[in-house]
């Protein structure tokens, strides 16, 4: 199957890209990795008159780290994160999540920012980056604006980005304490969208109490969700069997899944509970292991 005909533009600067989007408005579609857009175009479910390919925009490549945060350029591929062991110490959830996305070949092209902009509720990055409290920088004709991932995601396949805005990168705050993370995904096979996905990261202070926690849920709502109440119940407490169970139950009640061919709503909600419990248990073990190694 072949896409409908379109005109192709490959801008070489951010300004040019924003300008093209402004000029063609709804007629244009932005392409980063293209791993969701091109299949939709081949099935003729999407038929933009203009395709703006941002892969040649140098400002969107690469990543930078500061004392407080990691900034991933919009063209950061899933695979770049999957294979980067340097990120494991401070940003363990990123590598955990990247390795679960789609399949290894798609991961070589697909981008973090593209996944966020596509806003599929089953996508893995949105849940992960919600859990991490990340933000995106969007560049439009009026300059840059910072949008939290939470504010970015409105509905299935819908974001608060204006048609002429481009995500230039994703900012992930750096943890302050000891950190461990776990990403779990139930899928029918590799390459499938998640039946349920859970991404969670926990920071603890010197005393072992939870100082910061993020729990993101995929495929159990019209957008990726953050299990706020479950996070709250963990704050200031130690991870233990009871606290974990409590949090898992709260996370399950935060889920708002629909019944479909991947399972009933009740099933998916219960998987959230099981995965949060397993994820936090794994995190607890990793933190303990880290402490033992440190000591």
């Amino acid at each position: 199957m072949f896409p409908n005909a379109f005109d192709y533009a490959a801008p070489t600067s951010l300004e040019e890209a924003v300008d093209l989007l402004g000029r063609y408005g709804d007629e244009a579609k932005l392409m980063a990795g293209g791993q969701s857009l091109l299949p939709m175009m081949k099935l003729r479910l999407a038929a933009p008159a203009w395709l703006v390919d941002i892969n040649r925009v140098p400002e969107l490549a690469g990543r930078t780290e500061t004392d407080d945060a990691l900034f991933l350029g919009a063209l950061t591929r899933h695979a770049a994160i999957e294979w980067d062991r340097d990120l494991d110490a401070d940003y363990p959830l990123l590598g955990e999540t990247a390795a679960l996305i789609a399949d290894p070949l798609v991961r070589n092209r697909g981008t973090v920012a593209g996944s966020l902009a596509h806003a599929d509720p089953a996508a893995d990055w949105a849940a992960c980056l919600l859990a991490l409290g990340a933000s995106v920088t969007a560049r439009g004709p009026r300059g840059n604006r910072l949008i939290t991932v939470e504010d970015l995601l409105v509905d299935a396949l819908t974001t608060t980005l204006a048609p002429d805005e481009i995500i230039t990168g994703v900012t992930v705050p750096r943890p302050t304490g000891r950190v461990a993370a776990k990403s779990l995904k139930l899928e029918r096979k590799v390459g499938d969208f998640a039946i349920v996905g859970v991404s969670l990261q926990v920071e603890v202070g010197i005393d072992g109490d939870v100082t910061r926690v993020g729990i993101g849920l995929a495929a159990v709502g019209s957008t990726a969700l953050r299990a706020r109440e479950a996070e709250t119940v963990l704050l200031g407490r130690r991870l233990g069997r009871e606290t974990i169970r409590e949090a898992a139950a709260l996370a399950a009640s935060a889920a708002d899944p629909v019944s479909d061919r991947r399972g009933s709503a009740a099933y998916k909600r219960d998987i959230v509970r099981v995965f949060v419990e397993r994820g936090l248990t794994a995190v607890q073990a990793r933190l303990a292991e880290g402490q033992a190694l440190g000591a």
């Binding site: 139930l186 029918r188 039946i195 991947r262 399972g263 009933s264 009740a266 099933y267 219960d270 099981v274």
Partner: peptide, 17 residues
């Protein structure tokens, strides 16, 4: 035998995790 089908049986019999 999708996971959900097996899980429904486990739940009905009260043996799901």
């Amino acid at each position: 035998l999708f996971p959900w089908k097996v899980w429904e049986v486990l739940r009905q019999h009260g043996v799901a995790e």
